[in-house]
């Protein structure tokens, strides 16, 4: 199964590029953090030093090394994406499956909840949560996970509603398979694919939102984030153009790669069969 999946995925060059880029970005941030001589908030040299051998992307307004900052920021960005994907994805798949499989009050209630969450303005909701509970990175991830699950749930719900009416599900009922087994063994493996594709999209949305928060200065003050660096660089654009360059490129690459991977998954997992 895995082999076949890879063989098909491999055909989408852009998606393979996305996977490799994401891997390279992760490695880059890990190694840069491991071998850096300064911390992200540590003063490394004079302020506003342009790129040099010692500080390949220069220093910021306080004299912190932007290369090191970016490495830390990237790690946080990737973590936010991954954690939100896992959290939101799990909630989405579970709620969506329950909502799609069962009938009656449970289905109506879950469907209503999904609809409500889908219609709430995402950025605003995250802002409210953070201003209530404080802007730590954990709160940001929780806020994102708890808001970004709804689209996955909606997709999952539709899938389960289609698959549950297929003959093989009926065949399982006919030999007395238990409901939870039908849902987990028969329906989930045949319905979860579009949701996985969507989860990859939500990861990139989460990163954009988190960067936006940090850009506006609403991020975790104890954590360096790409959005924060870019937000800071904005103030000194004409004095020190280099401040936003590397973090900007990294953020762009991350989001682009995630979208490419998501497209690739879509092609492999949801082939349109004629």
């Amino acid at each position: 199964m895995v082999r076949e999946f890879w063989l098909r995925f491999r055909r989408n060059r852009a998606a393979v590029f996305g996977v490799l880029t994401l891997a390279a970005l992760s490695l880059f941030s890990l190694f840069a953090i491991a071998f850096s001589r300064y911390g992200p908030f540590e003063l490394a040299a004079d302020p506003f030093k342009p790129p040099s051998l010692q500080h390949p992307f220069g220093t910021d307004d306080l004299g912190r090394d932007i290369f090191v900052q970016s490495a830390y920021g990237l790690a946080i960005t990737l973590m936010v994406g991954a954690a939100t994907a896992v959290l939101g994805g799990l909630i989405g798949i579970i709620v969506g499956s329950v909502s799609g499989y069962f009938r009656g009050a449970l289905a109506n209630a879950t469907t209503a909840i999904i609809e409500i969450f889908q219609s709430l303005p995402l950025f605003f909701l995250v802002l409210v949560i953070i201003s209530f509970f404080g802007s730590s990175i954990t709160n940001t991830i929780l806020a994102l996970g708890l808001t970004l699950w709804a689209s996955t749930a909606r997709i999952q719900r539709g899938q389960v509603m289609t698959v549950k009416n297929l003959t093989f599900v009926e065949m399982s009922k006919l030999v007395g398979e238990k409901e939870y087994n039908i849902l987990i063994r028969e329906i989930l493996p045949n319905s979860v694919q579009p949701s996985i594709v969507n989860i990859a999209y939500t990861a990139s949305i989460a990163i954009v939102v988190e960067s936006g928060l940090a850009f506006l200065g609403l991020g975790d003050p104890r954590m360096m984030s790409l959005g924060f660096i870019i937000g800071n660089a904005r103030l000194f654009f004409f004095q020190a153009w280099w401040m936003g360059l590397l973090p900007g490129i990294l953020l762009f690459l991350t989001i682009l790669s995630l979208n490419l991977v998501s497209d690739g998954l879509n092609e492999v997992l949801n082939p349109r069969r004629s």
């Binding site: 199964m1 003959t167 093989f168 009926e170 065949m171 399982s172 006919l174 030999v175 063994r185 493996p189």
Partner: peptide, 15 residues
């Protein structure tokens, strides 16, 4: 027990 009509859809394709 029943033998269903459609020998394609009667199987879970992943099992």
């Amino acid at each position: 027990q029943m033998v269903p009509q459609d020998p394609v859809m009667a199987f879970n394709p992943r099992k």
